[in-house]
Each structure stands twice: as C-alpha cells, then as structure tokens.
Simulated scan of single mutants.
Amino acid sequence: MVATLNHSSAKETLKFLEKKASAGVWSLDFTTQQMAWSDGFYELLGLAPGSIEPSYETIVQMMHPDDRRSSGEFDRIVNEGLPLDRELRIIQPNGKLRWLSNRSEVHLDKSGKPVRVLGVLLDVTSQREAALARDAAESRFRALVSATNAFVWTADAEGKILDIRNWRELRGENPAAILGSRWIDLVHPEDRAGTVKSWSDALATKSNYQCEHRVLQPDGSYRWMLSRAAPILLENGAVREWVGISADIQDRKVWPAADASRETVMTGSQLRAARGVLNWSVRELSQAAGVSSSTIRRLEEMDGPPPGREQALAPLQAALEAAGVEFLFPPTGKPGVRPR
C-alpha cells in the first residue's frame, strides 16, 4: 500500500521545507494574469503571509533599483519561454537588504504558448555576503602587496614555492622559473647554506621563518632581502601551506652607520604612504598618535618636511612605527616607507 500526503500534510511539508531552506514558491497563470505566493515567499519579502495581493509589480517596487528589468522585459522573456533564473536584491519594508535567487520554469501548451510559470525563490544573502567579503579581502591583499613593493609568496606543506605575487611586476620575469625549490639558485652562494637551514628548521618545527640573504637581480647584481613566512595550520595541527613575504633591505644593510646620526624629518608624502601601508584612515592615525585630524591633513599636504619644527611629527612617527611601518631616509634620493 502506497501512502500519499493529503492536502493538509502537503501544506505543512511545504511550510517546513521553506523554513529550513529559506525558500518561497510562486506561480503566475497567464490566462488569468494572477500570481500566487507561498507563505515562505511572503516572508522572504519581509511581508506577513496574505498581507497584500501577489503581483509582479509589487516585487519590482521592492527590488534594488539596479536589479530592475527594463519596462516590458519580463513579458518578453515569458512570452518567448526564456528562463527567468537570476539573482536579485530585495529591500524589505524594514530596510533590510536580502539577496534572492530565482529558479523557475515556463509551462507551454501544445501550441507552444506559455500558460503558466512556476518558480522557487531562495535566500542566498549569506553566500553573497561571504563572497563579497572574500572579494574585499582579496582587494585589500592586492593593495597591500602593491603598497609594500615586496614579493608575497605561498609554499606547500613541504616548503615548495607555489606562487609569487609581484614577481613579474617588479622584476619583469616569469615566476615559473623559480617555483618549487628552484628559488634557492637565486640566493647568493655564501648565503645558501644558512637560508636552507633556516627554512628547513621552520618546516620541521612548524614555526615562523625569518632569514636575511642576498638575491640575484635581473642585471646580475645582488641585493639584500629579508624573507619571512608563517605556517597556515589545519585543525589537526598539520600545515596546509606557508605564506611569506620577501622585502628589499639593501639600503638598511649598506648605508654607512654614520648616517644613523643624521637629522631626519618625516615628510608629508611619507606620512600619506605610511597610512596607506597600514590602511589607516586619518581618524585612526589621530586616535593612535593623539594628534588632531586637522594637523595630520595639514602635514600630509606637504610633499617635503615642514618648514619649521613641528611637535606633532614625533608622536605621529612613533605611532606608525609601533604599528609596523619603517621610515627610510637614504643618503641620496627621496625618503620612503616600508613594512617593518
């Protein structure tokens, strides 16, 4: 004997499924031009079930302006039997924005004329927000990589290099030639043993890696680099991958020690660049240094150092250095900044 759902049971089942799946069902009869919404559909719109007469016009009014179709577009799509699947944003009466995904199917009569469309609406807000958060994080990461003027790289659990950001941009070379373990060939022969040992020790102990070494440049010269890396661990404690950064420290290594005694004054361009490295707003720097926002803006308008003694520079520089910025004052050329 086959058991079937009666009307009451089917309605309760639909209500249960809609609640658990954050979904709603709708239909449109082309003969009567009447639309029907399930309770779940009303709730996705932020409305009480049965509170208003279902209509496509109501949905359009609640759509985000950027997601509305042009006039007559809906009728054209339906009349041609085209799919209605799409994602759209709904602004609920309480002002809350929800991302909804529509999946539907147009039913045709024997002559091929549309007679009815059935659809289901799914709340995909959490997925969209997660995707937007990932995009924002990736954008911030790309901006940071660009601002640091350094190489950012990833390695697998065994320590083989998988990817190097900025390599092509800064060196004009394809990074594929040094992936895996071939990167060690670029390290100065005198520094290779120490570099390999430091990297091997970090891999063995799953601890942070740090090493200063000279790296071969495209023109055949060597420059000092500071390489750091940290392991990304799985829940079981195993290493999933390594994330590292290699920054040029040539000036720090070769400048005469006597230059450390030179009087150095932070410039407005350095102040702007330092905020960029940290992704700090003027307000955040003001709070960290105890200096007014108006003073910071005034100083940042100057590309060079201020004409006289400026008391605000010391706390500003101290706050930025404490947050991880290093100020550079080379014997020749313009002052600069970089992550510490």
Rank of each mutant, 00 (worst) to 15 (best):
V243Y: 14
Q250T: 07
H213P: 03
S181Q: 13
T31M: 11
A150P: 00
L45R: 01
G304I: 05
D39M: 08
P330W: 10
V120N: 02
A155L: 05
A319K: 00
N149Y: 04
Q311H: 06
L121W: 07
R309N: 07
I164Y: 03
S294M: 08
S101D: 12
P49H: 11
G308I: 09
L299F: 03
E87P: 02
L118N: 06
A230T: 09
T205G: 07
T267S: 13
E310R: 04
T58E: 10
F16L: 15
E300W: 03
E105L: 14
S292M: 06
I90W: 00
A136M: 09
W26E: 10
A204F: 09
P65C: 15
E73P: 03
L122E: 08
G268F: 06
R140C: 02
E310Y: 01
I232P: 01
I249E: 05
Q127M: 15
V187L: 03
R252C: 06
N279H: 11
D259F: 11
P339I: 00
K160E: 14
F41Q: 07
R297P: 02
Q210N: 10
E235Y: 02
A238I: 02
A314T: 10
T195R: 01
Q34Y: 07
M63Y: 04
F151P: 00
R223S: 05
P49E: 12
V106Y: 00
D66T: 12
Q217G: 09
D156P: 04
A314N: 09
N279P: 01
A157W: 08
F16I: 14
D163T: 05
Y222A: 04
I245Y: 01
E80K: 12
D85K: 08
N102Y: 03
E169A: 12
G72C: 12
V78A: 14
W280G: 00
R214K: 13
L313M: 08
K206T: 14
L234Y: 09
R340H: 04
G81R: 08
T295W: 03
S38M: 06
Q33V: 13
L100H: 00
I77L: 15
A322N: 05
R116K: 14
S294H: 10
I77D: 10
S70P: 07
R340I: 01
F30I: 15
A274V: 05
R298E: 06
G237A: 07
E263Q: 11
D163Y: 12
F30T: 13
S146M: 09
E138G: 07
L203A: 09
A23T: 15
K113D: 13
T31W: 11
N149H: 15
L97R: 13
Q33F: 14
T205N: 14
E310H: 08
N174P: 03
F74A: 11
G336P: 01
P83L: 08
V152H: 14
A229R: 01
A133P: 01
S22E: 13
P305E: 10
V243C: 12
V25N: 06
T267P: 00
E87R: 13
Y56D: 13
H7C: 03
G159T: 10
S126R: 11
R309W: 05
L47G: 10
V325A: 02
W99S: 07
H188A: 12
Q210M: 15
F151I: 02
I178E: 02
L216C: 04
F141W: 14
T32E: 15
T32G: 13
A288K: 02
R165W: 08
Q311T: 03
